[in-house]
């Protein structure tokens, strides 16, 4: 029991299980004998975690309840399988629905963000290119891109954060700053971009995403000597890389 408690206190397991509704039941509880039978759980089955869709279909199961290093990837794999099906069955058609209301589209974008449906980054980018896009949807689309943190999503956010329209740039920059640590990987190269606005947007975002202490103000980049600017970029790169190492080890595999 102690091993199980420890596994379910492990940050990898907690992170992998964040999108599941958790519930426990005794194998011998007669109220659930029909459910157990439907899930193929025999009368002598030991402790296990069973992954189920909201409709009651079994996604998989794990008996590795005392070993977080095995349990976390098994939970993540079950979720990825659910998410891929959910995107195909529920979300994909809604992106293409010309009659969808603003609220319906916003709800789909929120679902994409919440479930980290990386497959949908192209659909979200297409929404941003709609003519006359309401600000409410622009905000939701930017937030979805930030939460996905894919290469294409980050690319669009940094371009818009450095764009000529101040209001749009602010919205994109705010969303980008809330991206997961993995997004920083796609921003590091932009610190050396030919375009000063891109460099600044990338710097601002990386320092926020990786919680770099004492970031320089925008004025610093206008006035700093080349040597000091290079030192600052070296410092930020080093801290960002440390932060990404932890992310790649403890979180990225369980997204």
């Amino acid at each position: 029991v102690q091993g199980r408690q420890l596994a379910f206190s492990d940050r990898r397991v907690i992170y992998a299980a964040r999108n599941f509704v958790p519930v426990a039941a005794q194998r011998g509880d007669s109220r659930y004998s029909g459910l157990f039978q439907q899930l193929g759980i025999g009368p002598h089955a030991g402790y296990r975690g069973v992954f189920i869709t909201p409709d009651g279909a079994k996604l998989g199961e794990s008996a590795a309840l005392e070993d977080p290093a095995r349990l976390a990837p098994e939970i993540a794999m079950a979720f990825r399988s659910y998410r891929a099906q959910f995107y195909k069955d529920e979300l994909k058609a809604k992106f293409g629905d010309p009659n969808a209301t603003v609220q319906e589209t916003r709800d789909v974008l929120r679902k994409v963000a919440q479930m980290v449906v990386e497959q949908a980054d192209g659909d979200v980018l297409a929404i941003l290119d709609r003519p006359g896009l309401p600000t409410e949807l622009r905000v939701a689309a930017y937030q979805a891109l930030a939460d996905l943190g894919t290469s294409a999503a980050v690319e669009r956010l940094v371009e818009d954060a450095a764009g000529p329209d101040a209001a749009t740039a602010r919205l994109a920059g705010q969303a980008l700053a809330s991206a997961p640590v993995g997004a920083a990987e796609f921003l590091l190269d932009r610190l050396d971009d030919d375009n000063a606005a891109i460099r600044l947007a990338a710097y601002r975002a990386i320092t926020r995403i990786c919680e770099v202490p004492q970031p320089k103000s925008d004025n610093f980049w206008t006035n700093a000597k080349e040597k000091r600017a290079a030192e600052e970029l070296r410092r930020v790169r080093g801290l960002a890389e440390q932060c990404m190492t932890v992310w790649k080890r403890d979180y990225a595999p369980y997204r």
Partner: peptide, 28 residues
């Protein structure tokens, strides 16, 4: 750690409402 409510019907209702999958801990 993760809290484990024990009401399966409520968990199914919650999963349907939020379109999230369920992690059922079966205690042998």
């Amino acid at each position: 750690g993760i809290a484990w409510p024990r009401n399966v019907e409520q968990a199914i209702a919650e999963a349907k409402k939020t379109q999230r999958p369920i992690l059922l801990l079966v205690e042998g």
